[in-house]
């Protein structure tokens, strides 16, 4: 046991947790905005994959990392708009559309990647983001090197959490998002455009999913592989529920998952423990399913989630 504790308090371990949590935090916040407005986006898995591909490609061709990030974000917004077009404007069933968007985006990602890079024995890679130590703060013992000697995208994720909470709870737009997610009819009566607000929220969500994808292919792996997302989108769906549709709790859930994941990686590397690593990977899903059952009494999900809004229908 002491060996395990020693591992936990290593700087490298803490840094790994932060790194693993970063794409999950982006994706979870993105999904949260969408769901708070009443739109479940099961396209997240495919959108992250497509954004990881477009971001990587843009960087690979231009040599500019930030151009890659921009392209990934724009791709995410575009796919968010597509999902919103189907689910918000046309009012089609959100879960089936989401699966459609995931199938479409991942197919497109594979297709375009193969078209641009061909079939190579060694997958092409880029010189990805380098760590950017923050002066003074990175000198704090333990916490400094773990948190303040990270990629720029990590700092963006850390800043995104309070920012998301501020936008959602303290701005008029955030209020509109919550209204159209809870009671679109009332929001409509109050002069809030349900359609426009939902579109904006889903597109913002797509932008955040784009950042998640960009982090994976441009900071974590520095390459695009077909397994670059490998279920992280579904994890984000789970974390939103687990985090009760709240930015702070969702980010906390991402951090908790990252801790378990990092622990699992360490245990595998050190040959410690006889529990198969898959058991850890299963945990967030099982926890979420159990949590949904426990939480079901006090309904915390946005009331209008999965419900399309048509003004004419009463």
């Amino acid at each position: 046991m002491s060996a395990v504790l020693e591992q936990i308090f290593q700087v490298g371990f803490l840094a790994a947790i932060i790194r693993i949590a970063t794409p999950l935090a982006f994706a979870t916040l993105g999904e949260m905005f969408s769901e708070r407005a009443g739109v479940l986006n099961l396209g997240i898995e495919g959108i992250m994959l497509l954004c990881a591909m477009t971001g990587f490609t843009a960087t690979s061709l231009s040599g500019s990392l930030w151009l890659g990030v921009l392209v990934a974000v724009l791709t995410g917004m575009l796919m968010g708009a597509l999902h919103a077009l189907f689910t918000v404007a046309l009012g089609l069933s959100q879960h089936v559309c989401g699966i459609g968007v995931t199938l479409f985006s991942s197919g497109l990602a594979y297709f375009l990647y193969r078209l641009i890079f061909g079939q190579q024995s060694v997958p092409p890679s880029i010189k990805g983001f380098q760590t950017l130590p923050i002066p003074v703060l990175s000198d704090i013992p333990v916490l400094g090197p773990a948190v303040f000697n990270q990629f720029a995208l990590v700092y963006m994720a850390i800043l995104a959490i309070p920012l998301a909470a501020f936008v959602l709870y303290r701005t008029p737009w955030g209020l509109s998002v919550r209204m159209v997610g809870e009671n679109p009819r009332a929001a409509d009566s109050a002069g809030v455009s349900v359609i426009a607000t939902r579109f904006q929220a889903v597109i913002l969500g797509g932008a955040l999913m784009g950042l998640a994808g960009a982090f994976l292919s441009m900071a974590q792996f520095n390459a695009f592989t077909f397994g670059v997302v490998s279920g992280r989108g579904w994890v984000a769906i789970a974390l939103v529920v687990f985090g009760r549709w709240d930015p702070w709790r969702s980010a906390g859930a991402a951090l908790l998952f990252a801790f378990v994941d990092a622990l699992q990686l360490r245990m595998q590397a050190s040959g410690l423990g006889h529990i198969p690593y898959e058991a850890f990977l299963m945990l967030p899903f099982i926890f979420t399913i159990v949590a949904m059952a426990v939480m079901s009494r006090n309904a915390v999900a946005p009331s209008a989630l999965l419900k399309p809004f048509r003004r004419e229908e009463r």
């Binding site: 479940l40 099961l42 579904w234 099982i286 979420t288 399913i289 949904m292 059952a293």
Partner: peptide
């Protein structure tokens, strides 16, 4: 009253 969309999807990963 757990949403079956999310629970059935998450079970795939499990």
């Amino acid at each position: 009253k757990v949403d079956d969309v999310v629970s059935s999807l998450l079970l795939n990963s499990v």
